[in-house]
Computed example of a mutant assay.
Amino acid sequence: MGMVQEFKEFAFKGNVLDLAVAVIIGAAFGKIVSSLVEDVITPLLLNPALKAAGAENISKLAWNGVTYGNFLSAVISFLCIAIVLFLIIKGANKMQKPAPATAPAGPTQEQLLAEIRDLLKNK
């Protein structure tokens, strides 16, 4: 029974459950961002730019048997996703309220006693 109890304690700790929730939400959020890039940004921005450059089907680009088009396509996709994530996180950070400023620390007990001592000396 000891091993089962240890597993229960491990599996139901707050850290493990928080991590599991974060992974699930992260996967769902990844699908949202991928869809945004593939279904919205790529047709609106990337496809016209590729057509203007004369590389409409970038994945078929090759040179001496090296199909660098797939790699180039993956790099462009990564950059698009990174920019979108940056903008989303930047917007989310702006929406969060700033942390309240902490009050400046007052004088320590030793400083107050030293001031009292100095005032008593001056009398």
Score class of each variant (00 low, 15 high):
Cys80Thr: 04
Leu36Arg: 00
Ala92Leu: 15
Lys90Glu: 12
Gly26Asn: 03
Ile116Pro: 01
Gly65Cys: 01
Asn93Gly: 09
Leu36Lys: 00
Ile83Lys: 09
Gln96Asn: 11
Phe7Pro: 02
Gly30Tyr: 08
Cys80Gln: 13
Thr108Ser: 11
Glu9Gly: 04
Phe10Val: 05
Ala27Lys: 08
Asp18Thr: 08
Phe29Ile: 09
Ala74Val: 07
Ile76Ala: 12
Leu46Gly: 00
Val23Ser: 05
Leu45Cys: 08
Val23Glu: 10
Ala52Pro: 00
Pro104His: 06
Gly91Tyr: 11
Gly26Tyr: 07
Val23Arg: 03
Ala52Ser: 04
Ala92Met: 11
Met3Glu: 15
Leu119Ile: 13
Ile116Cys: 02
Leu113Ile: 06
Met95Trp: 10
Ala11Leu: 05
Leu19Pro: 01
Ile83His: 04
Asn122Asp: 15
Lys13Ser: 13
Ala53His: 01
Leu112Ala: 14
Val75Thr: 05
Ile25Tyr: 09
Leu46Asn: 03
Ala62Val: 09
Glu115Thr: 09
Asn47Ala: 13
Asn122His: 15
Gly54Val: 04
Gly26His: 01
Ile81Pro: 00
Ile76Asn: 07
Val66Gln: 04
Ala27Thr: 06
Asn70Tyr: 06
Met3Asp: 13
Leu79Ser: 05
Ala52Cys: 05
Lys90Gln: 13
Gln5Ser: 08
Ile58Cys: 06
Ile24Arg: 06
Leu17Ile: 14
Leu87Gln: 08
Leu112His: 12
Gly69Ala: 03
Ala92Asn: 03
Phe10Pro: 00
Lys13Glu: 15
Ala82Lys: 07
Ala99His: 00
Leu46Met: 13
Pro107Trp: 05
Pro107Phe: 09
Ala11Val: 05
Gly30Ser: 10
Ile24Met: 11
Phe71Val: 14
Gly30Leu: 07
Ile116Trp: 07
Gly106Lys: 03
Val4Pro: 00
Lys60Tyr: 14
Thr108Lys: 01
Pro100Val: 02
Ile32Tyr: 09
Ala92Lys: 02
Gly14Cys: 05
Val23Pro: 01
Glu56Asn: 07
Ala27Met: 11
Thr67Pro: 02
Gly65Ser: 03
Ala105Val: 10
Leu72Cys: 08
Phe10Glu: 03
Gly69Thr: 03
Leu19Asp: 13
Lys13Asn: 15
Ser77Pro: 01
Phe7Asn: 02
Leu50Tyr: 06
Gln96His: 08
Pro48Lys: 01
Asn15Leu: 14
Asn47Met: 11
Leu36Asp: 04
Val33Met: 09
Lys121Leu: 14
